[in-house]
Simulated assay, not measured.
Amino acid sequence: MPDLSARYDGKPVLRLLDSYVLDAIGALDEKTVQGNTILAPKIAQALKVEADTWQRAVELSMDLPEDSIVELRARRQ
């Protein structure tokens, strides 16, 4: 089986975007949730945005609407 994590090599924003979508649909593992929550200030700094949560940092850095998580959840159901 191929190493699927290799797809993130050199692409930290892709990893965050995947985490964002997985979090929105309730499929993000707890370890990643906790890690991203702890690293939220550093994630926001790296993405050059001002945000209180890592999810909001992703939204701002990608110009996503604030209600993107709600929309993703609604489409999942």
Rank of each mutant, 00 (worst) to 15 (best):
L14K: 15
L39W: 02
D3P: 09
L39Y: 07
A44Y: 11
L4H: 15
L17F: 12
Q77C: 02
L64R: 03
V58A: 00
D9V: 13
L39A: 11
A46R: 05
D23M: 14
P41F: 07
I25C: 01
A24Q: 02
I69E: 00
A74E: 15
R73K: 10
L16P: 08
V13I: 09
E59G: 07
D29L: 06
E50D: 07
L72V: 02
G35A: 05
L22K: 14
A27V: 04
V13E: 12
I25A: 00
Q77W: 03
K48P: 05
L60G: 02
Q55C: 08
L4T: 12
I43F: 01
P12Q: 04
A6C: 11
K42N: 11
Q55A: 09
V21I: 14
R15Q: 14
N36H: 03
R76L: 10
L17N: 05
A40W: 09
K31V: 01
K31E: 07
L14M: 12
I25S: 01
P41V: 02
E50P: 00
K11H: 15
Y20W: 02
M62K: 09
P2E: 08
D23S: 15
R7I: 14
T37D: 10
T53D: 11
N36K: 00
I38K: 10
L64Q: 06
R75G: 04
R56A: 13
D3G: 08
G26M: 05
I25E: 01
R56N: 14
S61L: 03
D52G: 14
L39I: 07
W54L: 05
A46V: 03
Q34T: 09
Q77E: 10
D63L: 04
M1W: 14
A46E: 06
A51G: 06
T32D: 02
P41H: 04
R75V: 00
K42C: 02
A40C: 03
P65K: 03
V33A: 03
L17I: 10
